Amino acid sequence: ATNIVGKVKWYNSTKNFGFIEQDNGGKDVFVHKSAVDAAGLHSLEEGQDVIFDLEEKQGKAYAVNLRIK
Rank of each mutant, 00 (worst) to 15 (best):
T2D: 05
T2W: 11
N3Y: 06
I4E: 07
V5K: 14
G6D: 00
K7E: 02
K9E: 01
Y11G: 01
Y11D: 01
N12F: 10
T14C: 05
T14V: 15
T14I: 09
T14K: 14
T14N: 13
K15A: 11
K15L: 11
K15P: 01
N16H: 15
N16T: 08
F17L: 03
G18M: 02
G18F: 04
F19M: 08
F19V: 07
I20Q: 00
E21Q: 09
D23Y: 15
N24C: 04
G25M: 12
G26E: 12
K27H: 13
K27D: 08
K27R: 12
K27E: 15
D28G: 07
V31G: 00
K33N: 05
K33D: 02
K33C: 04
S34W: 15
S34F: 14
A35H: 07
A35N: 05
A35T: 15
V36R: 02
D37N: 12
D37Y: 12
A38Q: 10
A38P: 03
A39H: 03
H42F: 15
H42K: 10
L44R: 01
E45G: 12
E46N: 07
G47L: 06
G47R: 11
G47N: 09
Q48L: 09
Q48S: 10
D49I: 14
D49V: 14
V50I: 14
V50T: 05
I51Y: 07
F52G: 01
F52S: 01
F52V: 04
D53I: 04
D53K: 04
D53G: 04
L54K: 14
L54A: 06
E55A: 15
E56Y: 10
E56C: 04
E56P: 05
K57M: 09
K60C: 04
K60E: 08
K60I: 10
A61W: 13
A61S: 15
A61C: 04
A61K: 15
Y62R: 10
Y62V: 05
Y62E: 06
Y62H: 09
N65F: 06
N65P: 00
L66T: 01
R67A: 04
R67W: 05
I68H: 08
K69S: 07
